[in-house]
């Protein structure tokens, strides 16, 4: 089975704050890491390969530093890595990210299955997977919590739908977005890390693509625009009760009684 896993490099934490007075962002310098949800997609790919044979290729769109997450994937057992990187891809929203990934994937030599994580911790939309499947004209299923059966032609999975579960059989080639906890991701192996230290990572840029029109990429190809960012507001009315335990409890009790909860 020929599997592609889409992984993204994200900031190590989300700790940013807006100074309410100046409106300037207070950002701590932080490291980058692999999007934690993508570890589950990678683990799923590795298990499928172990059970059914094949090749696991990881692909990431991002700046040159994003090679780090591809290397991390090698140390977990991925066979091959591709980085999609170009200045022209800067400022991509979901649509242009998915389109760029689809153009990159078309340059690889085919696939049976694409796996994506549930969502990223920075973009946090869970939309890239389904949009990518549209550009590739293949079926997709999100919220996959279980693999039930794999044959040469198709894969049967469980899709979690809050109150119900849908069991679906999907023909290859297809795309799945897997939920957290489908499998427990393995730890990177030191031996694999050493063995793949100098492994080559193929880099694809706009020039390699079939569609080279810069209007379709980066900011130009992004229909959504961020107009402004601001700190979240707090609610309107507040009462604060302080004092000894007894008196505040009485106030609390009286209030919930007044509101008819007891």
């Amino acid at each position: 089975m020929n599997i592609i896993v889409c992984i993204k490099q994200v900031p190590g934490t989300n700790k940013v704050e807006v100074d309410p007075v100046t409106g300037v962002l207070k950002r701590e310098k932080v490291d980058s890491k692999m999007n934690p949800y993508d570890l589950y997609a990678l683990e799923t790919a590795l298990r499928l390969k172990e059970a059914h044979g094949g090749v696991v290729k990881v692909i990431s769109m991002g700046p040159p530093q994003a090679k780090e997450v591809l290397k991390e994937a090698f140390s977990m057992g991925a066979d091959d890595g591709v980085l999609i990187s170009d200045r022209a891809f800067g400022g991509s929203d979901v649509l242009s990210t998915s389109y760029t990934l689809s153009q990159g994937i078309k340059k690889l030599d085919g696939f049976d299955l694409i796996l994506c994580g549930k969502q990223t911790t920075d973009g946090d939309t869970a939309q890239v997977g389904p949009e990518l499947s549209e550009f590739l004209k293949i079926p997709s299923v999100s919220n996959v919590t279980k693999l039930i059966e794999v044959t040469n032609e198709n894969i049967t999975v469980e899709m979690d739908m809050q109150n119900t579960v849908e069991i679906a059989k999907i023909n290859f080639p297809c795309l799945l977005c897997v939920d957290k906890d489908i499998f427990q991701p393995r730890l990177p192996s030191y031996l694999k890390k050493m063995a793949t230290k100098n492994k080559e990572i193929r880099v694809l840029s706009l020039n390699d693509f079939e569609d080279k029109n810069t209007d379709n990429y980066g900011l130009n190809g992004s229909p959504t625009q961020v107009q402004r960012i601001f700190p979240p507001e707090s609610n309107g009315d507040h009462e604060l009760w302080a004092g000894d335990g007894k008196s505040v409890t009485t106030k609390l009790y009286d209030k919930i009684k007044e509101l008819k909860f007891v």
Partner: peptide
């Protein structure tokens, strides 16, 4: 950013 900031977006 995990809710630390609100973003206003339009199309």
């Amino acid at each position: 950013f995990g809710g630390n900031i609100m973003a206003q977006i339009c199309t």
